[in-house]
Nucleic acid binder design. Sequence first.
DNA 1: GCTCAATTCTGAGCCTACTCATAATGTTTG
DNA 2: CAAACATTATGAGTAGGCTCAGAATTGAGC
Lengths: 209, 209
Amino acid sequence: MDDVRISSGRRERAKKDKRDRIMMAARELFPVRGVGGVTTQQIADLADVAIGTLYLYASTKAELLIMVQNEKFAAAIDDGLSAAESCSQGVLEEIIALIRPVVVCVREQIENGRTYLHELVFGDPAEPNRREGLALAARLEDGIASLLTRTDSKGTREDADAITLARVVTAIMHISVTASIFLQYTNEAVLEDIRTQIRAILTTHSPVA
Amino acid sequence: MDDVRISSGRRERAKKDKRDRIMMAARELFPVRGVGGVTTQQIADLADVAIGTLYLYASTKAELLIMVQNEKFAAAIDDGLSAAESCSQGVLEEIIALIRPVVVCVREQIENGRTYLHELVFGDPAEPNRREGLALAARLEDGIASLLTRTDSKGTREDADAITLARVVTAIMHISVTASIFLQYTNEAVLEDIRTQIRAILTTHSPVA
DNA sequence: GCTCAATTCTGAGCCTACTCATAATGTTTG
DNA sequence: CAAACATTATGAGTAGGCTCAGAATTGAGC
């Protein structure tokens, strides 16, 4: 897939097999015990590979988590995009509709969710899975941006502004989902809080001088 | 200070001494090598206490970092507050003036800075030093909020909105300073990026429906 | 089939944050 | 002053993420 040499069948198949087993093991263990409750050794054992091998396929425990969470994240974004589609209660609610599945998904196993978000933002953007996760985040941001441009049919807002505002919305969401203070909140309470912030940034008209 | 019993001198003094030595050791080592480049053992050695003792005074390595960074953070906020005071180029620039020292301070040793911010937001808010750090963050947010209310002499904006917007500004700053993508940027580039985002949220007027 | 190089796998071992049973030190009481 | 109690200090030990020197496997050339 990424090498010029015609790599022989057996090898490739064995590698794919291992990769799959590792992914499956991670997919099974992380949700149940949480990142902190699983050791890489346990994942290696369940995948039936040596610990060293595990680290041949994922350079980091976080990378492993990202692999797993990317799938859920992607699904949530898809849900959000179509939910936003069939929602005509104004930009604010459209954005919320888009965001809701993501917030719910991240908070479903909050430990994994917040670690995931943190690792995406904080970790090495070169690592392949992180790249993919960042691409997903970009997809989300684009979705928000297009909601902002579309509804603004009066032509008041520039496209650049929409993108910028989308970034801000993302930042708001990130903090509201990640910060410890909100851990005890219900999903709806968090969403309400996010709604308040988005409303504020969409309403403002200031003398920016 | 926090106990009813009249605790006798020697004990108290010894404790204060140790606390001070630990603080000094952390203050000396973290900036030079970065959080990741220092072991708790090294700090304990320099402070001339056993490793176990270290953990009697700081429950975590992160706590230790927070202790040290809180001081810098506090100073930066003070700088920012007075800079914002003597700046009359409109809200936007006032906010930037307020924020600039904080951004600079956090990015001075970026590893420590971003770890600090993350630990503040992510860690257990009950731990004493984190409490203090969060109080500092609140101080910053209040500063921003009051800039927003003050300049808005037309009475357009509610106080509640100002506080909400201040939270948003904080979120923007947090991400722009923490995310790996911005690591290579210069301080001014980061500030320019933050400026763009704040301008966007202050300019918008949308049909919120 | 056999040799040799390239690739992949392995797990003992390293590093470091953090704990906890025990020792040392200080304080109060008789 | 000694005994009894309370507080604080100690560092060997534990746990878990991650590495790396060597073993095992595979495919190519003959």
